[in-house]
Design a protein around this nucleic acid. Structure first.
Length: 482
RNA sequence: GCCCCCAUCGUCUAGUGGCCCAGGAUGUCAGGUUCUCAGCCUGAAGACAGGGGUUCAAAUCCCCUUGGGGGUACCA
């Protein structure tokens, strides 16, 4: 049974880069009918916050990801919050100490920092020199009685660690170049390396799928797995995602958070689809797809090895594709909150004219790539028309007036309007005035909307309805008589 | 500094030695859609980082250089 985990630290909002790791873990689990686990790595007490855990879970759910084990759903390897597993790490660490695989280090943070600086300046590797490894009993006693706090370090053996990465192939690291690393901080919390190895062991994780930034950490983890007498899991290190500035996506890029995209009204299916396009490509070259349709073809080994740049324009295109295909009712529901905030629509949903709203959505959906953009597209349907000086002048011209009055007269013969009827009316106006193209459409468009741009005229007229159309035209017929 | 990973159009990618004077998508530009913006359709421009090998044959294998990214923390 395959078991994978997504293990974020709740130190900020979930961004595209991290979320993508979750997505591929989830996809891998689905592909192999395995278990997807959510584990929260909140051992960094200073930076972790509860609110981020809630937010994280919400964002992941919004994207459509589900997990079989996690802090919110439980599972047989409880708890899934590392902060609640402290006693476990401590017990295992005591064992390491007893077996001589780890030792206490009394170096202070300041001392270490100073040595690192000196090493850097003299061109030497800035790593820990393992000095507390060989402390004499006398020295140990002296440190003990002085009450100095200590960390616990793992004895890194001088060996070559070799492993096969599912994406990168064989990787090897010479561990004689690595200093003994901390597994327990002086405050009794485990370091990331230790917590990861312990939890992956205890939770029977079979495949560790994570970012390439962890590739260099992997040999340390493998050593720890050996110490835990556990066969290391399979590793797959995915390429990372960068912003347009070619710097890694991080909390610094606040705009790339999942909740921000959600707030802007991107459809989760579209975002999910786009994230999968980063580092992976569907065999059939159809870049817009339903996850269910690609699961069987997904091979993690075929994922890209190189980092990719997040392309907002392509996301917008893809998201727009989804908006064009989404069920109109559903789309209308998604639009309502934005229209309410903009004051275009009643707060009391029962008062909303849904039929009209649906027509509006249908008319403007191809102009937007996320739902928040709806607001700037629909004001012509909700606000009074404001005409600029230039437009008044334009509408007052001889030809414009001919068009408007002819159009108006034809409207007078009608009781209702539909896209088809509107097209017929325009044909008639064209015949009667001998004006066509821009000359014909522009006066009507401007009189009706006050703008030169907008959706198709026939759908505007249809949405406005015959009476509003008449009223809006009438106002500019009066201009002529003044 | 040292260690590790990576390198195809601006961007995401296909390509696993001959099917590739490199395919798709996005973006850009042009034309079409009897109005505009958008959409849609059609078309165009646009890449194997450089240098050495190996081979009858290299985008594909090897080496070097260059470039990018990561690690080297009592962050994860």
């Amino acid at each position: 049974m395959i078991r994978v985990r997504f293990a974020p630290s709740p130190t900020g909002l979930l961004h595209i880069g991290n979320a993508r790791m979750a997505v591929f873990n989830w996809l891998f689990a689905k592909r192999h009918k395995g278990t997807f686990i959510l584990r929260i790595e909140d051992t960094d007490v200073a930076r972790s916050e509860k609110k981020y855990i809630t937010q994280l879970i919400e964002d992941l759910h919004w994207l459509g990801l589900t997990w079989q084990e996690g802090p919110d759903v439980g599972g047989q390897y409880c708890p899934y919050l590392q902060s609640e597993r402290l006693h476990i790490y401590n017990d295992i660490c005591q064992n390491f100490l007893k077996e001589g695989m780890a030792y206490r280090c009394y170096c202070t943070y300041e001392e270490l920092e100073e040595r690192r600086q000196i090493a850097k300046l003299t061109g030497k590797p800035p790593r820990y020199d393992n000095r507390c490894r060989e402390l004499t009993d006398k020295q140990k006693r002296a440190f003990e009685t002085s009450g100095l706090s200590y960390t616990i370090r793992f004895k890194v053996p001088d060996e070559l660690v070799v492993f096969d990465d599912l994406i990168r192939g064989t990787c090897q690291f010479d561990m004689s170049l690595t200093g003994d690393f901390v597994i327990m901080r002086s405050d009794g919390t485990p370091s990331f390396h230790f917590a990861v190895a312990v939890d992956d062991t205890l939770m029977n994780i079979t495949h560790v799928i994570r970012g390439e930034d962890h590739l260099s950490n992997t040999p340390c983890h493998i050593l720890l797995f050996h110490a835990l007498k556990q066969k290391p899991p399979q590793f797959a290190h995915l390429s990372l995602t960068m912003g347009a500035d070619r710097a890694l996506l991080s909390k610094r890029h606040g705009a790339f958070s999942i909740s921000e995209y959600r707030r802007l009204g991107y459809l989760p299916e579209g975002l999910l689809n786009y994230m999968m396009l980063l580092g992976w490509a569907p065999k059939d070259k159809k870049e817009k797809f339903k996850v269910d349709n690609i699961i069987d073809t997904f091979e993690i080994s075929s994922m890209s090895k190189s980092a990719s740049v997040f392309d907002q324009q392509k996301l917008d295109w893809l998201s727009g594709q989804y908006i064009r295909e989404t069920d109109l009712d559903k789309l209308t529901n998604l639009a309502i909150p934005y229209l309410q905030t903009a004051g275009f629509v009643f707060t009391d949903e029962t008062k909303i004219d849904r039929a009209k709203l649906k027509m509006i959505l249908d008319a403007v959906r191809s102009n937007i790539s996320c739902m928040s953009q709806i607001v700037q597209e629909v004001d012509i349907f909700f606000k009074d028309v404001v005409i600029s000086e230039n437009h008044v002048e334009f509408l007052s011209s001889e030809t414009s007036q001919t068009i408007l009055s002819t159009f108006y007269m034809n409207l007078q013969k009608l009781n209702t309007l539909s896209p088809d009827i509107f097209k017929e009316v325009l044909k008639t106006v064209q015949k009667e005035t001998k004006v066509n193209g821009k000359g014909l459409y522009m006066p009507i468009r401007i009189a009706l909307t006050g703008r030169e741009h907008g959706p198709e005229l026939y759908s505007i007229a249809n949405i406005l309805g015959i009476n509003a159309c008449k009223t809006r035209i009438e106002r500019f017929l009066l201009v002529k008589n003044k």
